[in-house]
Simulated scan of single mutants.
Amino acid sequence: MTKVDIISGFLGAGKTTFIKQLIEQVFTGEKLVLIENEFGEIGIDGGFLKDAGIEITEMNSGCICCTLVGDFSKALQKVLEEYKPDRVLIEPSGVGKLSDIVKAIEDVKKDAEIEISGRITVVDGKKAVLYLKNFGEFFEDQVKHASTIVISRTQMMSGEKIEECVHILREENAEAAIISTPWDELSGEAVCRALDHGAEIEEFLQNHSEHEGECGCGHHHEHEGECGCGHHHHGHHHHHADEIFTSWGKETAHKYTDEELDFLLKALSETEGYGTILRSKGIIPMADGTWKQFDLVPEEYEVREGKADYTGRVCVIGTDLKEEELLKLFHI
C-alpha cells in the first residue's frame, strides 16, 4: 500500500521548504516520489529538489485541481507503476483547492493500492488574515480540508500574533493538528507526532463532504451576492484557479544590475502598478557574471545566490496583471 501525502498551501507559504524538512527528517529511508504542479508556465523550483534525489513530474501547463484532474490521475498512476514508491508527496499549485486534489486521488484509488496518509496545509502566519479576506474561496478550502496545518514564519511573529493566527485557523478547522512552533526548533519526532495526530482525523475527513447550497468557501449562505470567499457570485458556484489568478512567465537574457533587481522587487512588493502580485520568483543573470534567485510574496522578498541556467526565467502570479508594464519592469 503506497501512502500519499498532500502538502498544500497558498502561494509562497513555504511548502517547498517544509517538504525538504519532511524528506530529511521524517520520511528518511522511504522510497519517495514527489509530484509537484506549478501554476504557471515556468517551473523554477525543480532543480532545487532534484538534489535530494527525488523524481519530479512538473506539470506546468495548468493546475492539478482544475484543468489537469484527468492528467493528474494518469501521472499518479504512472508514478505508482514505474517507481513503486513507499510514499508519494504531492505538492499542488498554491492556488489549488485541496478538496479537488483529494477527489482526484480518490479516483485513482479505485485502480491502485494507495491511501491518503495526510493532508498538510502550510499557512504563512503573517498573511493568513490578508488571504482569508481576499482569496477566501481558495485559502479557506486548503485550511478547512487539512488534517495537519503548519504555520510558517512564526519565528518572525509575536506570541500574541501566533495565538491570533491559530484562533483564525481554528474557526475554519476545529480538528486539525496545528504546528505553531518555528520549524527549525522542531525535531523529526515532533513533526511526526503532529502528522500522526493529523492521520487520526483523516478518517473523519474522508467521511466529510460538502453539501449542496454551500459556496466554494464552505459556508452556507442565505443570500445571493457576496459570499465569504470575497468574490461576488451570481448564485453559488465554484471558481477555478485560472478564472481568477493569472500566471505570467518569461525567459530573459537581460543581465540585471543590483540596482535594477532591487528596484523591480520593491516595485512588485510595494506598488499597485503591476496588478495584485501574490507571488513572484525567478532565476536571473547579473551584470557582474553571477546568478541570483529571488522569491517574493506581498510586502516581502528574499534574494539568494543561484546557479547558472541556460537563460534567465521569471514568473509572476496574481490577479489583474499588467503584462505590458511587467515587460518594461523586467527589461524584456
Rank of each mutant, 00 (worst) to 15 (best):
T271I: 08
G14T: 09
I54G: 09
Q25W: 03
G225Y: 09
V88P: 01
F48K: 07
V122T: 14
D196F: 12
T2V: 15
I168N: 10
I201S: 08
M1E: 15
I44L: 11
T148L: 03
H221T: 08
D5L: 02
E164A: 11
C65G: 04
T252F: 03
D5N: 07
T181E: 09
T28E: 15
G312C: 01
P85D: 01
E212M: 12
T311S: 00
I151G: 05
E222P: 10
V69W: 04
F245D: 02
E163R: 13
G235N: 10
S209L: 11
I283C: 13
I44P: 00
C315E: 03
G136H: 03
Q142T: 11
V33W: 04
P182V: 03
E82R: 08
M156C: 05
M59H: 02
H234T: 06
E272W: 04
S73W: 10
H240G: 10
H219L: 14
K250N: 03
E91Q: 06
G125E: 03
D45M: 06
P85V: 02
C165E: 12
E106M: 10
G318A: 03
S180A: 13
F27A: 09
A190V: 11
I114V: 14
D51G: 03
F135V: 12
G198A: 10
F72P: 00
